[in-house]
Design a protein around this nucleic acid. Structure first.
Length: 642
RNA sequence: GCCGACAUAGCUCAGUCGGUAGAGCAACUGAUUCGUAAUCAGUAGGUCCCCAGUUCAAAUCUGGGUGUCGGCUCCA
């Protein structure tokens, strides 16, 4: 065996080093002291490792520092360890479980009787940051599984023992331990060389969380936090969160007077005239988009006998989420509000015999749906019990699937682009709880995959996330706080046609089964509006704005003219108000700006004399006096549907 | 549904040790008629979320319920 090994760096350059040199030594001696100081961990032949590990063979080596997202993720994981050790020092008897890094920070789940208070959090944060200041090294060791089980049993860490036993059951022979200061935990690693690399830890909130995410398991106390390399980056993050809070659709919904909730109907919105305008505009926009692309709209009943749900399979799989309605004649809950439109559409399809020439048949519906969501999961417009989807079902031949999926994705892309939303794509495959045999699932999943690939779309695979009746493609957009929401979806369904005995007559004059595609673009109007409110921060483009222009007069003597202008613009179909309140011009302009109305039209004696208006855009841009016709032309352009 | 916090005027919020509730904005009335982000003055507005309990006395303490918020589970 040679004494030297070859190390290949990301730029392709190669360096020699004595076998057994630690990564840290190699970086310092062969690359440079600067990088050695900045280094956090290494990727060796694709595997992440501590810098203290030795290099024993020819390797590809990549070093990560605070400059990389991977570096940030690493210190957040380090931070979770530090927080756990701080908690156990401050609150003896608390058991530890797990604490991973997340997209925005990290969390750690503890088991103890009492939840953590905000004051506890402050103390823990101070203690954790003290450990950073102490710059304790993270030391990696390996022990046997038996030793590990004994170690955590002696510490009384029941949850850790459970995890170690699981790992042992999977065949692991040794366990990696990381120690900083007095505190030890098992962990795959890697970790930074020492706690000092973390920078700063900020604890954000606490909550309950089930052990292993299962609601039958004990409730753990979760601490959420985040970590950054320096205080400036932390402050920027906190500022961003503050900015996001200002855009929260619940806050803006109040300020812009869009919707209300009442305790007598939790999870169901009251829409104000402005909110209703927004809602109806989106509904009309979607109707135009769907009718342009070959859909027909139908309306169906809201209330159904349970026989329908037995046919569809919902009675068995979805009953706990449905609102049941007592039938006075039978005294039984024989009826239920529909939680989705598909079964109604299937019944509708069955009203007449279909020829292959009818296909694809694309049925669109915007009816109200009810789902009895868990009380604790309701929130604003994003999670409600009553909502409407821009729902549609496409009945087609199997051979038409790729084309229909492609057409749908193009439509969805057009709608999201119209409002400036970007999205990511997920393909979800068969879940454990499912109906139908595996050969159907094989064909369904292959059908969606081939459509996505023919479109050249990048997508993430989500095994097990499909609906119980078929696989699906989901389209996620992000809101202003970085939360991802699933809006658009297209789900393939071979099963419903079987259960509802749907058929068409083919060109061979024989009966065949159609395939059903469930699809939605907004997802729900409620959730879509919430995302739009946050996306635009309440300043809607003119085509969506509930009020497109507000008239303000300098003095009361321009009132008649203002009313004339208002009525003329209204007659052209624009949404225009006249602010008649006896306030100063400045006050009325301020109010129009706070309401984020696209145009404020100032009218004084000059405008009356010249037959014009002086528009001011939301944001303050003064467009100077123009003829009313000129403003109409401007509005026509800006308020046009995308 | 589970864990925790919270609930006071239309909105945002204050209210000390348990002694019967306040501000700003909004509304209303009057005056002001003003040229691009708050004119002035006055008036009115409360089942302190609901139901019990403790107490001479409850917005305040206790129990239960409802709702909201942050999470968990679930999800459009």
């Amino acid at each position: 065996m040679a004494d030297q090994i070859t190390v290949t760096l990301p730029d392709g350059s190669q360096k020699q080093a004595p076998r057994g040199t630690t990564i840290a030594d190699f970086v310092r001696d062969s690359i440079g002291a600067g990088l050695a100081k900045a280094a956090l961990f290494a990727r060796v032949n694709g595997q992440d490792m501590d810098l203290a590990r030795p290099l024993t063979e020819d390797v590809k080596l990549q070093i990560f520092t605070s400059k990389s997202p991977e570096g940030l993720e690493l210190i957040r994981h380090d931070a979770a360890h530090v927080v756990a050790s701080a908690v156990q020092r401050l609150f003896p008897g608390t058991q530890v479980t797990i604490g991973p890094a997340t997209e925005e920070g990290f969390y750690y789940d503890f088991f103890r009787e009492k939840p953590f208070t905000p004051e506890d959090l402050e103390k823990i944060e101070a203690e954790a940051n003290k450990e950073i200041a102490s710059n304790l090294p993270f030391v990696r060791t390996e022990i046997s599984m038996d030793e590990a089980i004994k170690l955590f049993e002696d510490k009384g860490e029941k949850f850790k023992v459970e995890i170690v036993k699981d790992i042992a059951a999977k065949g692991a022979k040794t366990l990696t331990l990381y120690t900083h200061g007095e505190w030890v935990d098992f962990c795959l690693g890697p970790h930074a060389p020492s706690t000092g690399k973390i920078g700063v830890i900020k604890l954000l909130s606490t909550s309950g969380a089930y052990w292993r995410g299962d609601h039958r398991n004990p409730m753990l106390q979760r601490i959420y936090g985040t970590a950054f390399f320096d205080k400036k980056a932390l402050q920027e993050y906190l500022n961003r969160m503050e900015e996001a809070r200002k855009r929260d659709h619940r806050k803006l919904g109040k300020e812009l007077d869009l919707f209300h909730f009442h305790p007598y109907s939790p999870g169901a919105a009251f829409w104000t005239p402005k909110g209703t305008t927004l809602y109806n505009t989106l509904a009309a926009f979607m109707r135009r988009m769907t009718s342009e692309t070959g859909y027909v709209e139908i309306k169906t009943p809201l209330l159904y006998n349970k026989g329908l749900w037995e046919t569809s399979g919902h009675w068995g799989k979805y009953k706990e989420n449905m609102f049941l309605v007592l039938d006075n004649d039978t005294g039984e809950h024989d009826f239920s509000l529909k939680p989705m439109n598909c079964p109604s559409h299937h019944l509708y399809y069955g009203f007449k015999k279909h020829s292959y020439r009818d296909l694809p048949l694309r049925l669109h519906t915007q009816d109200v749906l009810h789902r009895n969501e868990a009380a604790g999961s309701l929130g604003g417009l994003t999670r409600v019990r009553q909502f409407a989807q821009d729902d549609a079902h496409i009945y087609c031949m199997e051979s038409q699937i790729p084309d229909e999926v492609r057409r749908f994705v193009q439509l969805l892309d057009r709608v999201y682009k119209a409002v400036g939303l970007s999205y990511s794509v997920k393909l979800s495959t068969r879940p454990e709880k499912r109906l139908g045999d595996d050969s159907l699932w094989d064909r369904a999943e292959a059908g969606l995959k081939s459509a996505l690939e023919s479109l050249g779309l990048e997508y993430e695979l989500k095994p097990g996330d499909g609906a119980f009746y078929g696989p699906k493609i989901d389209f996620d957009v992000s809101d202003s706080i970085g939360r991802k929401w699933q809006l658009g979806t297209i789900q393939l369904d071979y099963l419903a046609p079987e259960r509802f005995d749907l058929t068409y007559i083919g060109d061979d004059n024989a009966e065949h089964r159609p395939v059903v595609l469930h699809r939605a673009i907004f997802g729900s109007f409620e959730r879509f509006i919430a995302i739009l409110i946050e996306h635009f921060a309440g300043a809607f483009p003119a085509w969506l704005a509930p009020v497109q222009a507000v008239l303000v007069t300098v003095a009361d003597r321009q009132r008649d003219y203002a009313l004339e202008v208002r009525d003329q613009l209204r007659a052209k179909g624009y949404r225009v108000d006249y602010d008649e309140r006896g306030l100063t011009l400045n006050a009325k302009i301020r109010d129009a700006q706070l309401q984020k109305i696209p145009f404020t039209l100032v009218i004084g004696d000059n405008e009356v004399d010249g037959g014009g208006v002086s528009p001011r855009r939301y944001g303050g841009e003064d467009l100077k006096t123009m003829k009313l016709e000129a403003f109409e032309a401007l509005l026509e352009k800006e308020a046009a549907w995308p």
